[in-house]
Structures are given as structure tokens and as C-alpha cells.
Amino acid sequence: MLTSFFKALANLFKTPKTIDYPLTPIAKDEKYRGVIEYNQDECIYCLKCEKACPPGAILFVPVDNPPINEKNKKGLKYHYNPHLCIYCSECVRACPKPQEALWQSNKKGHIGIKDDKINDDWFELEELKK
């Protein structure tokens, strides 16, 4: 009885385990799995990342004014959908030039809960691919 009283008293002065979220940011590890980033100047357009991606969140689609790159013979442009991505980094492991052309950052992707019809543009791209 007495010990529980002291424990309860000590608990009053303990700092809480939770953090005051919007004011104190959540501690983030530098190896946190975030969105995939891409450098189109370094890319060699081997399309290995597109094949490796489990949910199909990377698409190379032919466009009218493709990025200027001597390796890009078919006039393709890189597209990435962070809402479809599962951040598994299979694409980075498949990439012949990891860290230069394709790498995983520790940035959080945009949260699309309140956006309207967020994937409509993406579905049009997928149609182009077929």
C-alpha cells in the first residue's frame, strides 16, 4: 500500500512518454525508407527498375519532348508514383548505377488522403504503356 503510494507520487513527476507532436518533430533515422529519387542525366534507360518494381510505381512512357540524354533512344520519360510505391527499394538494387541515377531518400512522401482523384493522371500513363 505504502509502496504503491510512493510509486504513484513518483509518477506525477515523471516526464510523459509521448511527445508534443506538431511542436516537437518525430526523431527520424537517416536510414528511414522514404521516396525514391531520380537523376535523369545519369540514367541509362535500361528499364530494370521498371521491371523490378513490385507494385509498378515506376513507368517509362514515350513522350513528345523527351529529356535530352544520348542513351535515351526511344524517347522515354521517367514517371514515379509515390502513392503506389511501397518503398521496398527493389528498384535501387536492380539499378546498374545506384546512388547516381536512382536512390532512396529519407524524405516522407506527400500524404494524399485529402486529395481528390489522386491517381487519375497515373492511370492515363498506364494506359499509354499498354
Binding site: 525508407r33 511501397i86 527499394s89 527493389e90 538494387r93
Partner: peptide, 21 residues
């Protein structure tokens, strides 16, 4: 778990042939 795999819930740590990190 987050320190090892980079994520809290979906770890995506094991792939065919070994582990990812």
C-alpha cells in the same frame, strides 16, 4: 525494427536470396 529495416510496420526486409539491409 525501424533502425534495422527503415520502417516501423511493413519491413520489406527479406528478399529471395538474402536480406535487404
Amino acid at each position: 525494427q525501424e533502425l534495422i529495416t527503415g520502417n516501423r510496420v511493413q519491413f520489406d526486409y527479406i528478399s529471395i536470396g538474402g536480406v535487404n539491409r
